[in-house]
């Protein structure tokens, strides 16, 4: 393991908000912005949290599902859907034969997957992942998304286990709806290089709608 600390790809865009930074999972991320009280309100109205620090493991190929299963992870049966593959770990099936495994705040499955050996695993290929990842929650979340995404994301249209590869703010992104400590939130992943842009767009609209940035601490309190 390296001693070097990664920095969240969103850090550049967060700079002016002067968040309190801290390390989670080997990555420096924003823990808090304006303090617990304000962030709690933002969380209720419209809160945006950078969770790029969650560990990820990507794999694709005709044998990818088999391999994950061998590692003891549950994988979704349907294309473009997700399951909790292990406690605290999401497994997203992206299309037919590609998977994204992401440990949530308390998940710990990805570490075990780093044993993957390409030479010994025919039909499965590791996909290096460094996505920028966000949690979007609050009463106005759909209002925000209805501006940034052309898809019908209302509960009546978006199945609770659906993974949607679509465009958000004009760029390719992966999106799903989940329940986090009883609160319904949306997860958004995009290419790491678009991370700052995505943060800027989400925050700009969140602020217009009475919400704002929520640090990792407030998000998981």
């Amino acid at each position: 393991m390296t001693a070097l600390i990664k920095t969240t790809p969103v850090a550049y865009a967060q700079h002016e908000q002067k968040p309190a930074m801290g390390v989670h999972n080997g990555m420096e991320v924003a823990l808090s912005f304006e303090g617990a009280a304000v962030e709690k309100t933002h969380k209720q109205v419209l809160g945006v949290t950078d969770v790029s620090c969650f560990a990820k493991f990507g794999i694709k190929g005709p044998k990818a599902a088999d391999w994950l299963a061998k590692q003891g992870l549950k994988t979704p049966d349907e294309i473009n859907s997700w399951v909790e593959g292990a406690p605290g770990t999401l497994v997203l099936r992206l299309g037919g034969s590609e998977f994204l495994v992401e440990d949530q705040i308390k998940g710990n499955a990805c570490n075990g997957l780093s044993t993957f050996n390409q030479d010994k695993t025919a039909g499965a290929y590791q996909v290096a992942r460094a996505d920028a990842a966000f949690i979007l929650g609050g009463s106005q979340a759909l209002n925000l998304l209805s501006e940034l995404c052309v898809m019908d994301l209302r509960d009546s249209a978006l199945a609770s286990n659906a993974v949607v590869m679509t465009q958000v703010a004009g760029i390719s992104a992966t999106l799903l709806r989940e329940s986090l400590a009883g609160e319904q939130v949306y997860r958004i992943w995009c290419d790491v290089s678009y991370g700052p842009y995505m943060w800027e767009m989400l925050l700009e609209i969140a602020q217009e709608l009475g919400g704002g940035a929520v640090g990792l601490t407030a998000r998981f309190q």
Binding site: A11, H15, A169, S193
Partner: peptide, 14 residues
């Protein structure tokens, strides 16, 4: 409307 101007930055941009 809101004019989107998506841009990509490397992690060394700052």
């Amino acid at each position: 409307g809101r004019s989107f101007h998506s841009h990509r930055l490397t992690s060394i941009h700052g």
